[in-house]
Design a protein around this nucleic acid. Structure first.
Lengths: 201, 201, 201, 201
DNA sequence: AATGAATGAGGGTTCATTCAT
DNA sequence: AATGAATGAACCCTCATTCAT
């Protein structure tokens, strides 16, 4: 009984995740979710209060961790020495060490949080994250080139890097290792590009 | 009342553009559009045959130009010498010359075409463009580094660069000049990053 | 000007007739009618007060004649000697003389009146006509066979003969002569059948 | 509330049958059906997928049986000796035996199938049946009078006989026995009429 | 725990008709 | 005389959610 209960619950969560991932919160259909989960509409509401609450249960923890990460990134994320290293292959190694620490967060739920939360209370998640990355970037940009004026680029870079990560997650959802490699590769691109830009200004 | 014809039509088009831009084709609501346009549902259908046709009228020409650009990009877009230039500030100048040629296409309608066309006959636009960019990138990557194995990165780069442009358009929709500057800046980032990766740095 | 006016009016009437004939009153579309007539919705209402009034103008006279015919059929329509004639080829000749007198009424407008008037004030036309024919038939049936009990057949015969005529009009709408021949032929069938039934009972 | 399931379903089916019977498929209104059925629009779609599917459920089996009958009518329907019998009261007896076999099919649903299916996938049912009857009639006409030229009459007769049956069903929908009697009576009329025509030519 | 019937608001769309120009 | 913009009710259908069983 207990087991069965959990099975139903898990089935709903699993299928709902796919539905939200595919269609976004607003276009997601409870009917489709329960059908895929092998249960019924009525029973769904024995497990979850609403579509929104279901969504919360899927991305809530993710969001919590994510906020924690953001709030504490100054302590956790301190690879600023990166910016002083000038050899790209060196960078790569450093990133390969550093990135895996927060890569567990970069799964489908992260995508849902960032891209499929329109219409929920999380729909600012994307913006919040971007603002934070922006701030982060601007700091570094300023730090390395005091004369750099076009600081607005930080926000674009942020959105950019976020989209890139999301895009990789979506593309390699079924190959954890490749996904991680791609993210590292991709971030390298970013740092290299940034360095190039900054170094020449 | 009847004199308004063009006003109403323009009002609908303007508000519809915003609605599609904000909610995508499928979630866009005709009722919201007509309310924002100060007219009625019935009257809407005096101007447009359907929601889909309204969408077509907004992005149709855009799509036509866009296809033309894609089909003729080999002739139009030939700054491949870019890849042989090693001085980033030189790159920047070249890009600044080259990019404005197709920048007029990069407005809100382009965003709608790329990001908000799910459910319409244009919903492959994004994929088509990405495939083309991918092909383009793979060519160059192969050309410059025969040993470069991870050719899959082409598609990610393509999606990446497209997202970046879209993101910039979204952010600077009200400042044409800055938008253009940002796109140039941004593409520079891309080329520099790519060069770095490839070993030309 | 005056001529043009009549042209528009006639064009509307002609196309409306076809529209009513094809789709019935309720499914008929004013928009389609005006489009086919080469005019506009607004102008339509300069010529006709409403869809219903347009319908009236098309079948009104028809209905008037038809009612007159019905009310005076005892005077006009007196081929009762038909029923005493026993030679079918003789019948045929008599019918061929008699029927043409009211055949002018049996055109498309008659069909519209009988079959396409649902939703208008004429929608009882069919029933009225059937009742009258029924009465007529019952009279004759009684007259010729006093013991004939199943007098209800009159109504069926009436509906039957009406449907038959309508069906012929619809099928031979473009060949006046053949249409008339078929109607005669068809009515012969009826009288022969009736005679056969009655004579043997 | 939920116990009603079958009641509601039956109520919808019953009222829908009446609605289709009265207004035809296209003019039939789901709103009227659900109001008459004592339920709501939303709930209607818990029982039926669409207006068309509702229609299918009403006439689907009818159509299946009807097609079977048509395809097998050469085996099932073989009272051709009828045409050699010259005594009408004898005909009547034979018909009285034969007709009841397919009379169960001749109810309101048959009428809906034949007369109210415009706009559905069954809208050719009428034509198919008429063509088949036409063929049937032409055969017999040829057989009995090689010189009979006006073979076009077959189609008219077919439409005629079909209309007649439909008309009887419509008139005696509430008296099964009388309906059957009338159909027999009516078909007799037809055979006698046909015989009369043919025998005298 | 499970079912699915019931609701009502909203989706896109069509329509006859009115009326300012 | 002619135009067609404007209206609002009705069309079929989908949805998340409630609740009696």
């Amino acid at each position: 009984m207990q087991i069965k209960k959990e099975q139903v619950r898990d089935s709903i969560l699993k299928n709902a995740e796919l539905e939200f991932y595919t269609n976004g919160f607003e276009k997601a259909s409870i009917r489709r979710i329960v059908k895929a989960s092998g249960t019924t509409i009525g029973n769904f509401y024995n497990y979850f209060e609403s579509k929104e609450e279901l969504f919360n249960q899927i991305v809530g923890e993710e969001y919590y961790n994510f906020k924690f990460l953001l709030q504490n990134h100054n302590k956790l994320v301190k690879p600023d020495y990166l910016w002083q290293i000038s050899n790209p292959s060196e960078w790569k190694k450093v990133l390969a060490d550093f990135i895996p620490k927060f890569i567990p967060q970069l799964g489908n739920k992260f995508v849902i949080l960032i891209e499929c939360s329109k219409g929920t209370k999380y729909d600012q998640a994307r913006e919040v994250l971007i603002d934070l990355l922006d701030e982060h970037f601007k700091e570094h940009l300023k730090e390395h080139n005091a004369k750099y004026e076009m600081i607005d680029i930080g926000k674009v870079l942020a959105e950019q890097v976020l989209n890139g990560i999301v895009s990789i997650i979506r593309q390699y959802y079924n190959d954890e290792k490749k996904k991680n490699d791609m993210i590292i590769e991709y971030l390298l691109f970013y740092f290299i590009g940034t360095m190039g830009l900054l170094g020449e200004f």
